[in-house]
């Protein structure tokens, strides 16, 4: 496949970025999108140009680092995948592909396609944990009965990898799917009940402080989420905050 790539290039966080066109040739349809980016970067290095900076780690679809907005969608046109699991067979020979970093005021660009998602870490630090000492005195897993339904729902929420696709795709740059998932995974389990009220209050307060927008229930985040986190988690967070505020 021969492709034209329109890529956002930005020298550093303070620089003014712009879209730059590149050509790549002989791309295999079996390559992942990141492998295609590797080919481009090899080409750029060989011609003495600065390679395109992009985040990646596991390349197995579980780390959530590859923050790319491809042809107008977070992680590109495929569903339930991160960029590393997006394959070039989703595109056609001769296509022009637009590649941008995730956009949100709370996700400033560090360089090219790399964005700072530390806001998510600070939200997690505000309450995304349970205060239990697990060193040396771990209980048997079945000593605390939990219904299968609750365990499954908590597990579904816990599959959120914090990639930020929800924020990137939301027209309001809202982080409510991420925070809803993190609140839910504890709210559904007995271990999370002790700090439930403080958790939701503190995490929502931090989310607002970071400058994320307000959810208007478009549902775009749920569609673009590589882990299929349900909107129900946002509804549960809303209920949890109402309960904690009364």
């Amino acid at each position: 496949m021969n492709l034209t790539l329109k890529i956002w290039r930005q020298k550093d966080s303070k620089a003014k970025g712009q879209m730059v066109d590149y050509k790549v040739t002989e791309i295999s349809e079996h390559m992942s999108f990141l492998e295609m980016m590797d080919v481009l970067n090899e080409q750029l290095v060989n011609t003495g140009e600065e390679p395109v900076a992009f985040d990646h780690d596991c390349r197995e679809g579980i780390c959530g680092m590859c923050s790319m907005y491809i042809n107008g969608e977070a992680h590109g046109p495929d569903r339930g995948v991160t960029t590393c699991q997006l394959h070039m067979r989703m595109f056609k020979d001769g296509d022009t592909i637009t590649i941008e970093p995730f956009r949100a005021a709370a996700f400033p660009v560090i360089k090219d396609l790399v964005v700072d998602r530390m806001a998510f870490e600070r939200i997690q630090q505000a309450g995304g944990y349970i205060s239990v000492n697990t060193s040396g005195n771990t209980q048997d897993a079945n000593s605390l009965p939990i219904s299968k339904h609750a365990a499954d729902e908590a597990m579904d929420a816990a599959t959120c990898i914090g990639c930020g696709a929800c924020v990137a795709t939301c027209k309001n740059s809202s982080a409510m799917l991420f925070v809803g998932a993190k609140v839910s995974q504890y709210a559904l389990l007995p271990q999370g009940q002790v700090e439930a009220a403080d958790r939701v209050r503190n995490m929502v307060a931090q989310m607002d402080l970071e400058g994320f927008g307000n959810c208007t229930n478009t549902g775009a985040c749920e569609i673009e989420c590589p882990k299929g986190i349900s909107l129900e988690n946002i509804a549960r967070m809303n209920r949890e905050l109402m309960k904690a505020s009364i």
Binding site: E73, A106, K171, N172, G213, A220
Partner: peptide, 19 residues
């Protein structure tokens, strides 16, 4: 407030794909 939270706009955004 939501406009302020968006920051820089995308050069290409396919909103119809998911909402």
């Amino acid at each position: 407030r939501n406009k302020k939270a968006q920051g820089v706009s995308y050069a290409k955004n396919n909103g119809a794909a998911n909402s």
